[in-house]
């Protein structure tokens, strides 16, 4: 089976986000990039499925040339091949990214295409379902369990506190939710092996960017808070404030 995990490089979640001098983009100074955490679940699941049923795992990204570092990380985890669609557009919108990925996927054999449920930079949570619809593939988002049958996948999704169990035909698109698995660390052997693995570049015409960012701002400052008091003795005063001042009770 051909497994494809689509990944994106994002600032580490511990990063402070500052607005750049243009007032529209993030200031990249001092930001460390990592593979989007949800995409790591996707890569890990593809590796586990391959270990069970055999096949190959390809990791695919649309991004700047520097993204080869994150692709190497996925190769070190155990992916067989990496494909980079080089793109220097800083702030691509989800639909144009999805169009580029869909074009690339037409040239990459795929039975299961896995995405993270969202990238933790722009939080769009769209690309997996966009690609599925563009390629007319069945899709389930935010899965926490996957089992492959003959020509089908049975997946579980957590929604509103319940677990839903779905069956869908393969080829299909799935997006990974936290809880799906615990991604492995790249071993030293894996890191060495990754150096000789194939990292291909694929040129596809990306879609037109149709969401213009006019302004990027830090969140508005919250009103100065107050310490109501210490210990359980402060509780009545707190409840009074919540009722009369904040009016939330």
């Amino acid at each position: 089976m051909n497994f494809v995990a689509c990944v994106k490089r994002v600032p580490d979640t511990a990063s402070k986000i500052r607005v750049g001098p243009d007032g529209r983009t993030m200031d990249p100074a001092g930001v460390t990039y990592v593979v989007n955490p949800y995409d790591e679940f996707a890569v890990e699941e593809c590796l586990r499925l391959k270990e069970k049923v055999g096949g190959t795992v390809t990791v695919l990204t649309v991004g700047p040339a520097d993204s080869s570092k994150e692709l190497r990380h996925c190769l070190a985890m155990g992916a067989d091949r990496a494909v980079l669609v080089k793109d220097d557009q800083l702030q691509r919108d989800p639909l144009s990214t999805a169009m580029a990925l869909a074009e690339a996927l037409k040239q990459i054999p795929h039975d299961v295409v896995f995405f993270g449920k969202q990238a933790v930079d722009h939080d769009n949570a769209q690309v997996g379902l966009l690609v599925a619809t563009l390629l007319d593939l069945p899709a389930v988002a935010e899965v926490v369990k996957v089992e492959l049958g003959s020509g089908t996948a049975t997946v579980q999704r957590e929604a509103e506190g319940k677990i839903e169990v779905f069956e869908l035909p393969v080829p299909c698109v799935l997006t990974a939710q936290k809880g799906l698995n615990e991604p492995r660390y790249a071993s030293l052997k894996g890191i060495m092996a990754a150096k000789s693995k194939k990292l291909d570049e694929l040129a596809v015409a990306p879609g037109e960017v149709r969401i213009e960012v006019l302004k990027m701002e830090p969140p508005s400052a919250r009103p100065e808070g107050k310490i109501v008091g210490e210990g359980a003795a402060a509780v009545p005063a707190l409840v009074k404030l919540l009722r009369e001042d904040a009016k939330v009770l």
Partner: peptide, 20 residues
């Protein structure tokens, strides 16, 4: 129509204008 939305889980906000 322009929209305001959080990015980086609320560490910043964008004002965006889609062309469509």
């Amino acid at each position: 129509i322009v929209a305001r939305r959080p990015v980086y889980a609320g560490k910043a906000f964008w004002t965006v204008k889609p062309k469509s």
